[in-house]
Write a protein that binds this DNA or RNA. Structure first.
Length: 168
DNA sequence: AAAGTGATCATG
DNA sequence: ATGATCACTTTG
């Protein structure tokens, strides 16, 4: 088993979003283990990023983004969809990578539905968890870069950042 | 194109 | 306590 270790997560979300492409998202549901390769990510970086949930500062919901990298940030979007993020970097600087797609399940809300990931797993430690973790089997795919989606509320500068990463 | 759905946060 | 907002998906 090649579970991704703590140090891997102690980097910038901007670098980790592309680095997470091709890694295996692993989920244990009542003893049944599912592994899917990550195919699409986006990064959200710091309070200065007006698209990042933490751009208004630390609140009950966003405090988890300020933790040390290597844990899950999961929130309910539009009252329907659970979205999975990987918190990254040093403690105190909020940043995360949104997992937007895996092999077979494109779309941030669809993959969480399939893997039964919801807010019960918010804060799950991906380094030690038996329910949710990431593995590296050495595969590094080619990918393309584009703008983030669904963030019309952000500043023009932030909307235009090339922070979405998709496997070819 | 538009609804569906509920946690979250700012306002009062 | 109330209301606006929202890192989406499905259906027509």
């Amino acid at each position: 088993m090649n579970r991704i270790k703590k140090e891997f997560y102690q980097n910038s979300a901007v670098d980790l979003a592309p680095a997470l492409l091709g890694k295996l998202l692993c989920r244990n549901i009542e003893g049944e283990i599912y592994k899917h390769r990550v195919t699409e990510t986006e990064c959200y970086f710091g309070e200065s990023d007006t698209a990042c949930h933490a751009h208004k500062g630390k609140t009950e919901r966003t405090k988890i983004l300020y933790e040390e990298g290597g844990i899950a940030y999961i929130y309910l979007c539009y009252g329907i969809h659970s979205l999975l993020n990987i918190v990254t970097g040093e403690k105190g600087f909020p940043q995360a990578v949104l997992i937007r797609g895996i092999e077979g399940y494109i779309g941030p809300g669809r993959l969480t539905k399939h893997l039964q990931i919801d807010r019960n797993l918010n804060g799950e430690d991906l380094v030690f968890s038996k329910k949710l973790w990431l593995e590296d089997d050495g595969f590094t795919p080619h990918y393309k870069v584009s703008k983030r989606v669904g963030i019309d509320y952000a500043s023009e500068e932030d909307r235009n950042r090339p922070w979405r990463f998709i496997v070819d």
